[in-house]
């Protein structure tokens, strides 16, 4: 189980690795596409993200905890996701009647997405739609989107991972 968060989580979950992305240096993707054409499967920006994306690839249970801005992930989280481009091949396929990229060795995931800081129902709707879109190229075979206040996050995290995965 991999938990990626943009806020500090003061919890220990035995079965999980928790990565606070704000404790890592993750630079913007430069859209060089070298991870497709020069060094396939490997990002040429050798910052902390090169230790994170291989973990995302092999996780089959994953949690995203992120602040929501305008219905999108906030900047740090979005930057981290953009830097996961090495997980995909440049080559295209048709998936559910849409064009998408072929994946490399990426496990299909069961995901929990906890978004905090949303302002209203419209923003929730946009974010939920975004996760639905992301599920194609992020290999989210199943997922649950939950909205919370920032103070509720840990309680919800514990409850959800316990009910969904740990008790199984």
């Amino acid at each position: 189980m991999l938990i990626l968060t943009d806020k500090t989580i003061d919890l220990k979950i035995k079965q999980a690795e928790i990565i606070n992305i704000n404790s890592h240096t993750i630079n913007f993707c430069t859209s060089c596409f070298n991870c497709w054409i020069k060094t396939p499967g490997s990002c040429v920006i050798r910052d902390d993200q090169v230790h994170i994306y291989p973990k995302i690839a092999i996780a089959n249970e994953i949690v995203y905890i992120c602040k929501v801005r305008y219905g999108c992930y906030d900047v740090a989280f979005k930057t981290m996701l953009e830097r996961c481009l090495p997980l995909q091949q440049p080559f295209l396929r048709i998936l559910k009647n849409e064009t998408h990229h072929e994946q490399r060795g990426v496990e299909v995931k069961d995901a929990i997405i906890i978004g905090y800081g949303v302002e209203n129902e419209e923003e929730k709707g946009i974010f939920t739609k975004l996760i639905e879109r992301n599920s194609f190229d992020m290999c989210l075979g199943s997922y649950k989107v939950i909205f919370a206040t920032e103070t509720e996050v840990e309680e919800i995290l514990l409850k959800e991972v316990s009910e969904r995965w740990i008790k199984q």
Binding site: Y70, C72, V75, K78, E82, R133, N134, D137
Partner: peptide
Amino acid sequence: YVDCIPSILL
């Protein structure tokens, strides 16, 4: 970019 706006624009 990743189904939404590039992080630099965000």
